[in-house]
């Protein structure tokens, strides 16, 4: 059985490996602590020990050193974990130099709004395509650095794509840019991980990852359609 759902982003496996690393440290420490806790219960049960030793106020130097050393080991494993996790954190939060595609994803009560920049590649122009409906899909090409400008229209939402391991709160009044490089084609869930009201549960949209040819084809027809409807309105 897999503990994690399938990872489909370049940095997803980093998170999974980090989990196993911390588990190794925390697990070992946990087993040792359990031993420290349980061993005396069997060894020193009062049926086996006559009289506990008398110690005034202060404690034995040796035992004190032992605890100090244990804390030091704890501190060292802490720093190993911190060191190891830092590169993963950087991978998530530092944007790569090369931007291949970019979208705006806006949380609202209660669905995600997707905005494609249109042919000119610039947001905020007339040819932007905005898709604002429940359970809609955002199309993204595979193996490309896809940037997401994350926004929120009303309350705090949280952009969570389980299979990429990325989660980012969307705060009203702010724009936070995160990136994903998908490594596998398919249809993945976007859910909202921050409680955002009565239909928080129903907030579910999708990211469809497809090959470059398919994506180009899709985006072409999308923009053509947009141009056509815009023309009709005029």
């Amino acid at each position: 059985m897999n503990i994690f759902p399938e990872s489909v982003s370049t940095y997803g496996s980093g998170i999974d490996n980090l989990f196993w690393l911390i588990l190794a440290f925390a697990g070992t420490a946990f087993v040792i602590s359990l031993f420290l806790l349980l061993y005396p219960l069997f060894k020193n049960h009062h049926t086996r020990v006559k009289r506990a030793s008398y110690i005034t106020g202060s404690l034995g130097k040796f035992h004190f050193k032992l605890v100090a050393v244990a804390m030091l080991i704890m501190a060292m494993s802490d720093f190993i974990i911190l060191f190891a996790e830092h590169s993963t954190w950087e991978a998530f939060t530092t944007l790569p130099k090369q931007k291949d595609v970019e979208y705006i994803v806006t949380g609202r009560q209660w669905n995600w709004i997707f905005t494609y920049p249109g042919r000119d590649g610039v947001f905020g122009t007339a040819d932007d395509v905005v898709i604002d409906e429940p359970n809609s899909e955002l199309h993204v090409p595979i193996n490309k650095n896809a940037f997401f400008q994350l926004k929120a229209k009303d309350v705090v939402h949280s952009f969570f794509v389980v299979n990429t391991r990325l989660k980012q709160d969307c705060i009203p009044g702010r724009t936070i840019t995160r990136w994903i490089n998908f490594t596998k084609e398919g249809k993945y869930d976007i859910s909202c991980a921050e409680i955002c009201g009565i239909a928080h549960t129903k907030m579910r949209n999708f990211i469809v990852v497809e090959s470059n040819e398919k994506y180009d084809h899709f985006i072409d027809s999308l923009y053509n359609q947009q141009a056509a409807t815009a023309g009709n309105q005029q």
Binding site: S33, L36, L37, P40, L41, N44, H45, H46, V49, K50, R51, A52, S53, H63, L66, V67, A70, M71
Partner: peptide, 13 residues
């Protein structure tokens, strides 16, 4: 650790 160390060498009931 200190709480657990109290158990060591005691006469545990």
């Amino acid at each position: 650790l200190s709480l657990m160390a109290t158990l060591w060498g005691g006469k545990i009931k």
